[in-house]
Simulated scan of single mutants.
Amino acid sequence: MSDFETLLFDDSRDHVEVTLNRSDTKNAIDAQMIDELHRVCAILERTPQIMILTGGADGVFAGGADIAQLRDRNRDDGLAGINVTLFERIRALPLPTVAAIDGYALGGGAELSYACDVRLATPRTVFGQPEPGLGIIAGAGATFRLVRLLGESVAKQVLLAGEWLDADQALRFGLVQSVVDPTELVAAARGVAEKMGRSSQLALRMTKLAVDAGEGAHPQIELAIQAMLFEDDEKIARMTDFLDRRAARSAR
């Protein structure tokens, strides 16, 4: 869509690819980018698709929020949750999201990647939360998402001690799925998206819903979802195809 200015939006495949496009500012997340990402969310809520999100700029995913705009935000802006509201919306998208992260993912940029379901990195990827050094907290999801993603001890090392996680650490802690060469990053992300795309999209959507549900929702949510899927025509067709192929192999 040509009317995006801070993003590149490509829906020519079976999934959507969104590229942050403010390379002159290290993809700093400003108000316009937030508005445009909300528009992307509206598209994917209306017509669910898997999304790949990447920084595009060589060696930078997103350097954080736009500090000039952040400095001018007041108490009401803080309570409005400008960034966290967007990232929660990304987190809640119906189908999975894949963040392809090359280089620095700092502050709000890191938090944007945490909102995605799967992350891929390159050897030069670095995650960091420098917000306390600027007099604020990591207030767009890191304080609760990192605890879930990394565990409390490692999350506190990042959030309180100011430790940065390089690609090897992110892979070891499970924050990223894989580390690939920068030239192979987009292809690797497409491979993940295409693999997910071969699954039942309804089953994929319901799995994400179950995973993201609060702890108190289990196991009842699995029972309700599975009961619904057991009646789904695609489930019957997929299982019938599986059994037919197995029978054909046995008959050889």
Score class of each variant (00 low, 15 high):
Asp30Asn: 06
Ala31Met: 04
Ala31Trp: 04
Ala31Glu: 13
Gln32Met: 02
Ile34Phe: 02
Asp35Glu: 11
Asp35Cys: 05
Asp35His: 10
Glu36Arg: 00
Glu36Thr: 01
Glu36Asp: 05
His38Val: 05
His38Phe: 13
His38Asp: 08
Arg39Gln: 07
Val40Gln: 00
Val40Cys: 01
Ala42Gln: 04
Ala42Val: 10
Ala42Met: 01
Ile43Leu: 04
Ile43Val: 11
Ile43Ser: 08
Ile43Asn: 06
Glu45Ile: 01
Glu45Arg: 03
Arg46Leu: 02
Arg46Tyr: 08
Thr47Gln: 03
Pro48Tyr: 00
Pro48Gln: 06
Gln49Arg: 14
Gln49Ser: 12
Gln49Lys: 13
Gln49Glu: 12
Ile50Arg: 03
Ile50Thr: 02
Met51Gln: 06
Ile52Cys: 11
Leu53Tyr: 02
Leu53Asn: 03
Leu53Gly: 10
Leu53Ser: 06
Thr54Leu: 15
Gly55Asp: 14
Gly55Trp: 09
Gly56Met: 08
Gly56Trp: 06
Gly56Tyr: 05
Gly56Asp: 11
Ala57Leu: 07
Ala57Cys: 11
Ala57Asn: 10
Ala57Asp: 12
Ala57Gln: 08
Gly59Ser: 14
Gly59Leu: 12
Val60Trp: 07
Ala62Met: 06
Ala62Asn: 10
Ala62Arg: 05
Gly63Phe: 01
Gly63Ala: 11
Gly63Cys: 13
Gly64Asp: 11
Ala65Thr: 12
Asp66Gln: 14
Asp66Leu: 13
Ile67Met: 13
Ile67Leu: 15
Ile67Gln: 08
Ile67Arg: 09
Ala68Arg: 13
Ala68Ile: 15
Ala68Gly: 11
Gln69Ile: 08
Gln69Lys: 10
Leu70Pro: 12
Asp72Glu: 15
Asp72Tyr: 06
Asp72Ile: 12
Arg73Phe: 04
Arg73Asp: 07
